[in-house]
Design a protein around this nucleic acid. Structure first.
Length: 260
DNA sequence: ATGGCGCGTCAAACGCGA
């Protein structure tokens, strides 16, 4: 089972790229972030035509997440627990069945948090703490978990072409990195890094300043695996080609293949 | 060395992202 995660930066603006990706990469499941539309405006029919059903948690104009699956979606859960006043659509969870067992999958869009020290930064850190609590609850179930999405955190210096340029940025602040490390320390495996210890593995290149042409990237989209999923890990990587397409998202899809 | 984009909203700039 191939499970991908992609911050698509507007599903309506990117629908042709999304369909091309599904045809070319043939993932069984795709977690989308930044769909930037309400549930009713999500182009579900176009995905259904390729055999995918969808679980959507949308919002007008900003944010918004979804999960597409060829094998159906069960027990869909929207919103991240821990703050009833949080109206931002950044989290959806569902179970996908396979012949070898079920996997619980989350599509996550963590707040950016810039500028550091602002209310937005506090929201990011609070969101990471809520995510930690949710992950602990899920890990208690001792089942395969793939917790995938745009975490908006650069884990290590090796995850940026120019780490010095990110000092002080909310994506690379010690508080953000520490909170991500705390998620890893729950026993979760960073699938792409586990398969690719080498430098130069990125998932985001800014639209500005020719970042893509210079390969001036960062790795902020991650797939975290529970021990039960890590035991099934076959391969993981980044589908960089999507960043080179016409009218691209600024993120490329990251993916993991499990023996499921 | 500097600056260099793009989406959605709602119809011109602006909020937002990373």
């Amino acid at each position: 089972m191939k499970i991908a995660t992609w911050n698509i930066n507007g599903v309506k603006a990117r629908i042709e790229s999304a369909l091309t990706y599904l045809r070319e990469a043939a993932p069984d499941v795709v977690c989308l972030q930044e769909i930037k539309c309400v549930d009713e405006a999500f182009p579900a029919e176009a995905f259904e035509d390729l055999g995918y059903s969808a679980a959507v948690h949308g919002q007008k104009g900003f944010n918004g997440v979804a999960i597409l699956s060829k094998a159906g979606l069960e027990d869909v859960r929207r919103k991240l627990a821990g703050d009833d006043a949080d109206e931002q659509a950044r989290y959806v969870e569902a179970t996908v069945a396979s012949s070898k067992g079920a996997v619980r999958i989350a599509s996550i869009y963590l707040p950016n948090g810039n500028p550091a020290g602002s209310d937005k930064f506090a929201y990011k850190l609070a969101w990471l703490a809520r995510l930690n609590r949710r992950f602990r609850t899920l890990l208690d179930q001792e089942m395969p978990l793939v917790l995938a999405g745009d975490y908006n955190v650069i884990p290590e210096r090796v995850d940026a072409k120019r780490p010095e340029a990110w000092i002080g940025d909310a994506l690379f602040r010690p508080e953000s990195r520490g909170a991500l490390q705390s998620l890893f320390n729950l026993g979760l495996t960073d699938a792409v890094r586990a398969c690719h210890p080498e430098p130069g593995v990125y998932t985001f290149w800014d639209y500005q300043a020719g970042a893509w042409q210079k390969d001036d990237g960062i790795r902020i989209d991650h797939l975290l695996l529970s021990p039960q999923a890590a035991d099934l890990l076959l391969a993981a990587g980044v589908d960089r080609m999507a960043r080179g397409w016409e009218k691209p998202s600024d993120h490329a899809p990251a993916w993991v293949e499990l023996d499921l």
